[in-house]
Measured scan of single mutants.
Amino acid sequence: EFTQISGYVNAFGSQRGSVLTVKVENDEGWTLVEEDFDRADYGSDPEFVAEVSSYLKRNGGIKDLTKVL
């Protein structure tokens, strides 16, 4: 089950073990991109978060400006 990723309007994530599946949706709710990120592939949590965040930004993730990150 996908849940909204904090700080984004149209990005959602689903966690299974160490694998986080993220997706970005358009205004109609269609999935634009979907990608798996395995936490085990990264040396640290900040590196993992930075990679996921960068992916979302590159692929149309819209920041939720009503929330302070």
Rank of each mutant, 00 (worst) to 15 (best):
G61V: 12
K63G: 07
K23I: 10
T66E: 14
G60Q: 05
F12I: 03
E34P: 02
V9F: 07
L20E: 00
E35V: 13
Q15W: 15
Q4S: 06
R58W: 07
F12Y: 12
F37Q: 00
V49C: 15
S53C: 15
N59L: 08
D36M: 13
E1Y: 11
L56W: 00
R39G: 00
S14N: 08
F2N: 05
S18G: 07
K67H: 12
I62G: 01
S44G: 05
W30R: 14
S6I: 11
T3R: 14
R16Y: 06
V52W: 08
T21D: 00
R16F: 07
L65R: 08
A40I: 06
V22S: 00
A50K: 10
T31F: 06
F48H: 00
E34I: 14
Y42W: 06
E51F: 10
Q15N: 08
V22K: 00
N10Q: 03
P46S: 15
Y42R: 01
V24M: 03
V19T: 05
L20R: 01
E35Y: 13
D64G: 08
V68T: 11
T66F: 09
S6L: 12
G13R: 06
K57M: 12
G61A: 15
I5E: 04
N10K: 05
V22R: 00
E25T: 15
S44V: 02
T21S: 08
L65D: 10
E47G: 01
V33D: 05
D64P: 04
G43P: 10
E47A: 08
S53K: 13
Q4L: 15
I5A: 03
A40P: 01
V68R: 11
G7S: 04
E51Q: 10
G60N: 03
S53T: 14
V68M: 14
V19H: 02
F2H: 06
G29Y: 02
R16P: 01
S54E: 15
T3Y: 13
T21L: 04
D64A: 10
V22Q: 00
I62E: 05
E51Y: 10
G60W: 08
T31D: 03
R58N: 13
F12C: 10
V19I: 12
S6W: 13
D36E: 12
F12A: 02
S18E: 03
R39F: 03
E34V: 13
Q15D: 02
D45G: 07
R16S: 07
I62V: 09
L65Y: 10
V22W: 02
K23L: 06
V49A: 11
T31W: 06
G43Y: 07
N10G: 02
S54W: 09
F2T: 04
G7M: 04
W30C: 15
R58S: 10
V52H: 01
D64F: 09
V49D: 12
Q4D: 04
V52M: 03
D64Q: 09
F37L: 03
D36S: 15
G17I: 05
S18D: 04
G7D: 04
T31M: 07
V33H: 12
V22I: 10
R16E: 03
V33N: 09
E1W: 09
A50M: 09
G7F: 05
Q15P: 04
F37M: 01
G60M: 05
E51P: 00
Y55Q: 04
G17R: 02
E1P: 09
D36K: 14
K63R: 12
Y42H: 02
E25V: 15
G17C: 06
T3K: 14
D36H: 13
I62T: 05
E35H: 15
D27A: 12
V22Y: 01
I5F: 06
F37K: 00
K63M: 14
G17S: 02
S18C: 13
F12G: 01
T31K: 06
G17E: 03
D27H: 10
I62C: 08
S14I: 13
Q4F: 08
F2S: 05
F2M: 07
F2Y: 09
D41E: 07
D45N: 07
L56T: 00
P46Q: 15
V22F: 02
I62A: 04
N26S: 10
V68A: 11
S54C: 14
K67E: 12
S44I: 02
E25R: 13
T31P: 07
K67C: 15
G60F: 08
Y55E: 04
K63S: 08
S18R: 06
A11V: 13
G29F: 04
E25I: 15
L65N: 11
V19L: 05
L32D: 03
T31Q: 05
N10C: 13
G29L: 03
G43R: 10
F37C: 02
S44A: 03
F2R: 06
N59A: 07
S54F: 08
G7E: 04
G29I: 02
L56I: 13
S18F: 05
K57H: 12
T31E: 04
G60C: 08
L69G: 13
K23N: 01
V49K: 08
P46T: 15
V52T: 02
G13S: 12
V33R: 07
T3M: 09
V9W: 06
V24W: 03
L20C: 15
N10T: 05
Y55L: 04
A50S: 09
D45A: 06
V24P: 01
V19R: 05
R39K: 04
E51V: 15
F48V: 01
N26I: 06
D45Y: 14
F2Q: 05
E47M: 05
V49M: 14
E35G: 08
Q15E: 06
Y42Q: 00
Y55C: 07
V49S: 09
L32E: 05
S53V: 15
G29A: 04
Y8T: 06
T66L: 12
E25L: 15
A40K: 12
Q15K: 11
A50E: 09
F37E: 00
Y55I: 03
A11Y: 02
G13T: 07
K23M: 07
F12P: 01
D45P: 02
W30A: 13
I62H: 05
A40G: 07
R39N: 01
Q4T: 08
F48S: 00
K23Q: 05
K23Y: 08
L32A: 07
Q15C: 15
Q4Y: 08
R39M: 06
S6D: 12
T31N: 03
L20N: 00
R39D: 01
S6R: 11
D38V: 02
Y42I: 01
D38I: 02
F37H: 00
T66V: 08
F2W: 15
S44K: 01
D41H: 10
L65I: 11
R39S: 02
Y8E: 03
R58H: 10
T21A: 03
S6T: 11
E47D: 08
S53P: 02
V22G: 00
S53D: 15
R16N: 10
K67Y: 12
D64V: 12
S54A: 14
V49G: 06
R16I: 07
V33E: 05
L65C: 15
V68D: 14
N59W: 13
V24Q: 00
R16H: 09
Q15R: 15
G7C: 14
T3F: 14
E34Q: 15
G17K: 03
L20D: 00
T66I: 08
F37T: 00
I5N: 04
V52I: 13
Y42C: 04
D27T: 12
G61D: 02
D64H: 08
R39P: 02
E34A: 09
N59V: 09
D36V: 14
F48E: 00
D64K: 10
Q4G: 06
G61H: 02
